[in-house]
Amino acid sequence: MAANGHQSNSPYVTLVSSDGLEFVVLREATSVSPTIRGMLRGQMIEARTGRCEFPEISGVILEKVVEYFHYWYKNQDKKDVPDMDIPVELCLQILDAADYLGLDSKPPLRQLKEGS
């Protein structure tokens, strides 16, 4: 599916928070989130522009999310990785965003198969 989409072929994508902060992230690093993966395949705006806006995630939280993306990307094949530091006051909101982005579970089989 991704192949016939119009998304830019750049290895980076831009994530935009509710307060307008932009994060440029390695496309591969975002693929840990099935939600973003879904956005970036297919033919909708996000896929075409490589720009994903999240009107309900604040910059502070999205920054943490992006940090996690990189953390996952760097450490995905490693063992005994140190935990990522998460400030207690952000816990609830991060949890919320994680749920939204589907970071709570392994991607379902069908998506793995089709994921590019």
Binding site: T35, M39, M44
Partner: peptide
């Protein structure tokens, strides 16, 4: 005609 749809909006 999906080109102008926002995935994020629909997902949300």
């Amino acid at each position: 005609n999906a080109g102008s749809l926002s995935f994020e909006q629909l997902y949300r």
